[in-house]
Structure formats: C-alpha cells, structure tokens
C-alpha cells in the first residue's frame, strides 16, 4: 500500500496581486505557491512594503487575488458567493494583527466572544471556550477588564484568544509582535505556537524579525513579489 500524501490544509497556487494606481499598475505578488499542513506554523519575512500583509489578507479572504487559487482544506473560498466569504472567514480563519484591534468598549472576555456571536456555537459553549482560551494565554484573572487597562502584550494575548474562539483551520498573524518589546514578543510567539500546536491549526505569521522567524519550522522570504523558502 502506497502511503498517500496528506492533503495540505493550505494550498496556494500561482497567486498574484496587482493594484491599479493613478500612476500605473503595481504588481505586489507575482505567482506565489505554498503548501502548509494542518498543525504547521510558518513564518514569512520581508521588508516593509514587500507584500507580506497583502499575502496574509488574501489568505484571510480580506482581499481577492488578481489571479491564482487559495485552497483551505481543499476549498477555494473565493469560489463562494461574496456574501458567504464572511461566514467562511468567521468559521475557518483567525486573525492576529499588529494593532490588536480590540474593541475598547468590550471587556477582555467579551472581546474574545465577539467572533462567536455570529457563529452557530451555543453561547454557553462559547463562553466556556473563551474562558479556557484566556486561561491558556494567562489572562483568566483579567476577564472583566477593558483593553485600556491592559498592557500591549496582554492585549495581543487577548487578540490571540479571540482568533481561536471559533476553532479556525487557519490562523494568520500579521506582525503580532511589531508593537511589543522583546520579552513580550517572545511570550506572545510562544503562546501562539503552543496554541497552534494544541489546536492543530495552520499558523502563517508575517514578521520582519529573524529572531522570531527562527522559532518557526519553515521560514519564507517574500521579495520581488515571490516567496522563497529560506534556508534555516
């Protein structure tokens, strides 16, 4: 019996993205191919303006590609009708941004619950899961605090918990440590990696920090619009 190659949780083929500007078209991504297995975490490095965030936003269905395909667990979300993309994103993708984008008017616990409000998860179940995630990120004692009362690292941990509340297949982190000091950054990345491992999700993290990237199994470099696997 020939062992079958496991289907990648994330498959990207010939992905391109071009922006039409008044001064002319700008090709940001030029034919990217990528395969990531479930439970795997990769880092994407590149200088500012190289297209890392663009690539992540396309993976996260926040923007459509100009051409190429993205398959998440074998499904191309861009084949769905536009109104279904949001649902897909809600259920299958989690985001962690450089700016945490916590809702200042909601508590820590509520911020984590926000994605679940529109999911089919029962509220009690979601509430329990939220507590668990916050416990995992070490913020179980801050459940009813507001974002303004947290440090930058704590806010980012809340964002991580929020990203996982709906048990996504794919977690995309766009420079999640960009605004943090070194220690906090390391803590956040460690937590992220643990969470990803424990929940079996794919993690794609964009960073410009080699130190952080080195903690990942695979490091890609994005330049000239193309992804290159970096030799560890």
């Amino acid at each position: 019996m020939i062992p079958s190659t496991p289907t990648p949780g994330l498959q990207v083929r010939q992905l391109t993205k071009t922006y039409i500007m008044p001064a002319g078209p700008v090709e940001v991504l030029r034919g990217i191919d990528l395969d990531v297995q479930p439970g795997e975490a990769i880092a994407i490095m590149g200088p500012s303006g190289s297209g890392k965030s663009t690539f992540l936003y396309i993976l996260g269905t926040l923007e459509p590609p100009s051409s190429g395909t993205v398959l998440v667990d074998g499904e191309d979300p861009f084949q769905r009708p536009a109104q279904d993309l949001a649902q897909f994103r809600n259920r299958h993708i989690g985001f962690v941004f450089q700016e945490h984008y916590l809702l200042p008017q909601c508590t820590v616990w509520e911020n984590v619950l926000v994605p679940s409000l529109i999911n089919n998860i029962s509220r009690p179940d979601a509430a329990v899961r939220a507590r668990q995630l916050l416990e995992q990120v070490g913020l179980s004692h801050r459940l009813h605090h507001y974002p303004a009362e947290l440090s930058g690292g704590e806010r980012q941990r809340v964002a991580m918990a929020r990203a996982l509340i709906n048990k996504p297949r794919l977690v995309l982190a766009d420079e999640p440590t960009g605004n943090l000091d070194r220690q906090a950054a390391n803590t956040v990345v460690s937590l992220l990696l643990d969470l990803v491992r424990n929940h079996g999700v794919i993690l794609v993290l964009a960073t410009h920090s080699l130190e952080i990237a080195r903690r990942f199994a695979r490091i890609y470099e994005l330049f000239d619009g193309q992804l290159h696997l970096r030799d560890q």
């Binding site: 984008y101 809702l103 926000v114």
Partner: peptide, 16 residues
C-alpha cells in the same frame, strides 16, 4: 473604521 474592519475580519458580513 478599524473597529468595523476587525469585525469584518472576524466574519461579520457587510449586511450584519
């Protein structure tokens, strides 16, 4: 906008 953006990123549709 960023609040709306993050809700959108979290899967809140335009209609919602």
């Amino acid at each position: 906008a960023s609040e709306l953006g993050v809700l959108s990123a979290l899967g809140y549709s335009r209609g919602l």
